[in-house]
Write a protein that binds this DNA or RNA. Structure first.
Lengths: 215, 215, 215, 215
DNA sequence: GATGAATGAGAATTCATTCAT
DNA sequence: CATGAATGAATTCTCATTCAT
């Protein structure tokens, strides 16, 4: 069985996520990843240009899958607010259920200067694009405000999600991240101001640990 | 380690910001920084434990100054919303007026695993603390909602600011970042939902370039 | 190892000359040579032991053909001096008309330690043998001096030819190498001393570019 | 004693000659050379750009010394023929008395593509320059022929020397190289042709081993 | 305190070669 | 015979850090 299989490529990516999460990007040795995948070091270079390319590929390829999965789920909802909630919930639960991936995305990936300098457009742009679609649909239906920049709104949502997940990762992933969904959606939708009396309060209880970690 | 010539210490920090911004953390050589500061490489180690410590110190010491300056300005306002606006404006204009520092904080710093693993508590916590104070004051005065986690609100604000600045840095710092202040404060306060009819609309025009970059 | 398709063997040798000349021995990849020959990398190893063997084989096999061709031509002459002139002319014109081969022989081949340590006896020895025969015939006929070592004379001739061709290759193969034949033969025959008044001066004009490059 | 001394540079060069001669250029490890010089591997890179630069530097710097030493000796003679003989003798005895250097110059150096592509002009050109001066002086005094290209004559002399030394190195340095001086000078001066009756025949006996090796 | 020459650990990467198909 | 995916050995070179002066 000596054929260049997509299977092998995937095995390398899986191993990379594991090893990067466990060792950190710099400490991780390519040979470790190869070994974890049951391959020789050189084989990694048959599929990836170098170690950084491996990290970026983890991101891009996982992201692609994530975006299409999220989009499918989000688009099952027709109410923009439900869409937003769906996205937030999936974002949080996605990372919560895959701590290795969370560590890769929130910590290790940022150590790639290529990533930090946004040399990587694909995955992140697609994700921002999905958020943007939700925002646009809400604007069309009059559920979301139109007098503010849609781009800014998009980044507000992404920034909030990213920060919340980062905080969770940094604090040791000890609390229930998904439990923040309700409040986060509420905050994004209604803001922090007390102008409106928000009525429906179900789903707003936050994990105690979460609250402590955020403080 | 704080005795010696404080002057030299500062020269090193200044040079570090410049060199890190220009070269990136990993490409930057300690000897480059020393040369930029007009010193020998060994001298850097009289003031800083190692290269990463230098990066972290840049952050911590600049942050200390920033936090106290921001706090002073913020506290001149008594209305929590004005305080928030003051903070947002200062955050954005602070980075806008010091691109090297912006590059250091938003890009290079994240490449330090010690930072990313939140091994650095001081500066960031203080900054989050300042935001938190604003939030708490707003809650006490009934201007900000109390039924959501104050910690979450704090991170929402920080996450939004951080993402907006990052996007600006990544897109080449080409547009007027401060012009986003009005909309950002509005969004944070009132949310993205169209529940409220927000009245005062002055200060909501956003730089065209900004809008394009955010899309 | 000589069975298989002789055609393929030759294609590989031809490609090797081209690729070695273009890339240099070390930069040249076996896979490049294979590709140039329209074959898979592994196939090269059905015909040659390794990369160095390929280089050596290029030399040996081309040399074999060269020696027999040169010998045939040389032996058509019966005057030893004509024989020498014939050899010099063919040596120079041979390389001049095949720059890739010249580059291989004069530059790349020397980068093989096996060659440089004279681990390769065949081709070169045969060539030296041919020169030797010319020398011996001249001695028998009293045209060439007998009181000096025939071996030394042989190497003198070869050394002169080799150096002249090397200089031509290094200087970019820009001038007419064959134009040196007359003078070179004259010098070899009569020496650099002005003891003799050499009469026949035809064929002694040297290419201007050649003269410049030799200076 | 922590000063960048020329002494250290020289120690490295000496060690390099030894190690290159013993191991060959490619097998030689930089760390071996460093160890031989009593230094850390990294130190070598303080003085030389890389391994090839080290090899080239050995050549250039030794050559410089050689050329000036040879020139001094050669110019003590005023008769061009004596000058030539002096040069040939020094060339042969120089290599004979320093086998490591001979191995470096005749074998290892050629494995550097930078050298083989004449990326190194200095040393060799100077040496050719010295030969050229001898030739020119002989022409002025009517001792050497003027109707042939001086450049060609120069390369003829160099080519002969180079080939003779190479043959000696390849055959194991087993015979007396200097013993070839007389015949070589005679051949260069009077040529291989029997046109002239050369009279003085002293100094023309060649080492038996030499004669065998040249055959 | 300051210097800057010396250190030396450490891992990514290449590519000739193999061998299962 | 031919293939070409997989192998894995093997070493340069960098540069943060030290420490004798």
């Amino acid at each position: 069985m000596r054929s260049k299989t997509p299977d092998k490529r995937l095995r390398i990516l899986d191993s990379a996520v594991r090893v990067f999460a466990r060792e950190g990007f710099f400490k991780a040795k390519v040979s470790q990843i190869a070994e974890d995948a049951g391959l020789a070091p050189g084989t990694v270079y048959l599929y990836f240009k170098n170690k950084e390319d491996l990290l970026i590929s983890v991101f891009e390829e996982r992201m692609e899958e994530i975006v299409s999965r999220f989009r499918a789920a989000v688009m099952e909802h027709h109410d923009p607010k439900s869409r937003l909630e769906c996205l937030v919930r999936m974002h949080l639960s996605g990372f919560q259920s895959d701590p290795d991936l969370a560590a890769c995305f929130q910590v290790e990936l940022r150590q790639s200067s290529r990533f930090m300098r946004r040399g990587v457009k694909g995955g992140l742009q697609q994700y921002l694009g999905l958020i943007r679609e939700i925002v646009e649909s809400g604007r069309r239906e009059g559920v979301f405000r139109k007098e503010v920049s849609a781009g800014l709104v998009t980044h507000l949502i992404f920034g909030a999600l990213d920060e919340v997940v980062s905080t969770w990762v940094m604090s040791g992933m000890k609390y229930n991240l998904v439990s923040l969904t309700g409040q986060l959606v509420d905050l994004l939708t209604n803001g922090i101001g007390s102008g409106v009396s928000v009525i429906a309060k179900q789903g707003l209880e936050v994990d105690r640990e979460a609250d402590r970690a955020l403080s």
